[in-house]
Design a protein around this nucleic acid. Structure first.
Lengths: 269, 269
DNA sequence: GACAATGTATCGCTGTACGATACATTCGTA
DNA sequence: TACGAATGTATCGTACAGCGATACATTGTC
């Protein structure tokens, strides 16, 4: 059996916990840590792997896994060879998506946008140093994974990330650049702080951000930010296409206005 | 702010726990129960609501919520008026989708199917008495929610459910019918056990299942089952259209072969 | 300006979750 | 077929984590 690769872009959610918080329930942290072990997993996990990854004893892992299994958040692999995430997780996915006002507001606009655009359209939400995809409306030709909800990419080197940074102060932008683990995901990934700042400035002037092959070879993407009433950037809309069919200039000329329109429709609430 | 409605079809995941299991960790169950409170929520929840719904004291709810917040599984509402599910949930969604072999295998086939079909195409997975949507490839005209991952529907009254039941023994089918809380979701919902058995038998003979307006007014849906190597049904592929454009007969004639082909491509692994 | 509702903090006592260890079962290999 | 290494499972006494009760703070509403 084949599985999709693990977290390619290595944007680990920041789980640095203030220890010795009197209100903090360790058992819950343990449980979530166990579930998070799967973020790094390329195949079903054994109990010992889970225990080791979580830095806990075998007994603890045993009880946590046992409990999560009872509740449906962990399952046995189809071949009974290891543990995999359980389907109950999707119930919470639904809750998140339907209770996030931005997702709710953006969805119809996104579908409308998709109707006028033959390319891939995404909605992403900011979480610290990364953008998490909440919806992906695939393009016709795309053969890739259907709707990879939960996939995340770094802010510093993506169109959506720059669209988001464009709505921040220089200080905040610097902080993001600083704290990000910048590596060349592709040869074209921009990692130099000054260059990133320049691209952010460019996004501020244009009203949209552009990224060329910084995450995926051959991919061109533009993005516009979604902001809260007070101006805080919350996420972005992306339109992504292939460089085999577009050059940067015509791509922008064609899609930037549409992306801007869509973002505008969502931002005025 | 508007939110999507709560669990319309009322398929509560079966969380009847064997009490006094020596390996069972109550704190984890509490945490998950708190997160599950959102399943029934139509708006952000207060601490007291969470406590009440979970049958726990205010202190317990306080600590659980506090911990889950630290970890990112719960957030404050944008207006700071209540609690909502947190974005970290989506990380686990991704894990589930990419580590489920059926989803991985089915996704490309589903996209191919969608290319040849101008209607909505879904992938659903069986969980007890319900089917949970793991992917939804929307049709052009559809204005509804983008990709409602995690949405679930009952087995007894859906095309996918009948496709699944068609691959079970009569005894198993009867058990599902028996245990299901059958109610008329629409006036057309079939709730009579004998009638359901007849539809299942029909699905067995045709190789696909059909449902007319049993969940949604004006909706027609056909489905074919996805089965494991040993024949156990694991989920279904759906094609759904509108009765304003199709009559049942032509819908089946047009799409049943395609659905069957797709299921076949997935089932032979 | 009083009141009701919210989230936050504190503190002893109880009972739960801990680690260590021993058992069972499956798998791969010689 | 028999061995050994890995897996998942069960048991048990002790320490400390999480419990409830209560009191405080802060916000919004009439």
């Amino acid at each position: 059996m084949r599985y999709i690769q693990k977290a390619e872009y290595g944007v680990p959610p920041n789980t640095s916990i203030d220890e010795s918080d009197p209100l903090f329930v360790q058992a819950i942290a343990r449980a979530m840590q166990v579930l998070s072990t799967f973020h790094e997993a390329a195949k079903p996990l054994t109990l010992n792997e889970i225990a080791a990854a979580g830095g806990m004893g075998k007994s603890a892992a045993q009880r946590v896994v046992h409990t999560l299994r009872q509740l449906g958040y962990i399952d046995r692999d189809a071949d009974d060879r290891g543990y995999v995430p359980g389907i109950r997780i999707l119930d919470h996915t639904r809750d998140y998506l339907r209770m996030n006002p931005l997702v709710v507001r953006a969805s119809p606009v996104l579908m409308e946008l998709r109707r006028n655009v033959r390319e891939r359209v995404d909605l992403s939400l900011r979480d610290g140093l990364r953008l998490v995809y909440a919806a992906r409306l695939q393009s016709k030709r795309e053969t890739f994974f259907a709707t990879l909800v939960g996939q995340s990419v770094p802010i510093y080197c993506t169109s959506g990330g720059r669209a988001v940074m464009a709505h921040m102060s220089d200080a905040e932008v610097d902080e993001i650049i600083e704290r990000s683990v910048r590596r060349e995901i592709t040869p074209k990934t921009i990692t130099d702080p000054a260059a990133i700042r320049a691209k952010v400035q460019e996004a501020r002037e244009n009203g949209y951000a552009l990224a060329l092959e910084e995450i995926l070879q051959g991919e061109i993407a533009i993005a516009t930010a979604l902001v809260s009433p007070d101006g805080t950037p919350l996420g972005a809309i992306h339109i992504a296409g292939s460089l085999s069919e577009w050059d940067a200039e015509s791509f922008c000329r064609r899609f930037a206005p549409l992306a801007g329109e869509a973002a505008g429709a969502i931002n005025r609430f």
